[in-house]
Nucleic acid binder design. Structure first.
Length: 155
DNA sequence: GCCAACGTTGGC
DNA sequence: GCCAACGTTGGC
């Protein structure tokens, strides 16, 4: 099975790549979108590489790398009444939401901003810059992944 | 803070 | 199964 590449969005006020670095690994819970869930459940494999993207912040863009360290397990926040991700339609007998575990890999030398991605012709097909694209987990081609990594390197 | 675009819900 | 109403996402 070939390795796959992903872009995962997070609001740094909620969970940033620095947070991930501190705790090394984290379950990517709280996803409540079926398309994003299906990527985690069906397509993400251990070892897949992840572009860690910060949204809703001053400088939006890709800040570093992570990798999938565990395939999808039940997202326990769906059963937790006190969690903001609680889903009353889910039950331990009929779970609805799943999440993968993500492991910190590295910070980029410098972030690759959304602006730069938009300005880079070779990245024009990246989902993150398509109009109206709100998916928090998106597939990325190896080519796009490599280009973004290259752009992050300081000269 | 605004609002366009999108996904989900629920009445019919 | 349609679609209006609503809630959310996320760039600006």
């Amino acid at each position: 099975m070939a390795k796959k590449y992903w872009l995962m969005k997070s609001e740094p006020d909620v969970f940033s790549i620095d947070d991930l670095k501190k705790i090394k690994r984290d379950l990517w819970d709280g996803v409540r979108n079926y398309q994003a869930r299906n990527f985690m459940m069906r397509e993400m494999k251990v070892g897949d590489e992840v572009l860690f993207y910060h949204s809703n912040t001053k400088l939006m863009g890709v800040y570093g790398l992570a990798r999938i360290s565990k395939e999808a397990v039940e997202d326990l926040t769906q059963f937790d009444k006190k969690s903001k991700y609680f889903d009353e339609k889910a039950s331990p007998e009929r779970p609805r939401w799943y999440c993968v575990e993500v492991e910190y890999k590295a910070h980029f030398d410098r972030p690759v901003s959304l602006q730069e991605i938009k300005e880079t012709k070779a990245l024009k097909d990246m989902l993150v810059i398509q109009k109206g694209q709100r998916l928090s987990i998106q597939p990325v081609t190896k080519k796009e992944f490599d280009i973004v990594c290259k752009m992050s390197k300081l000269p």
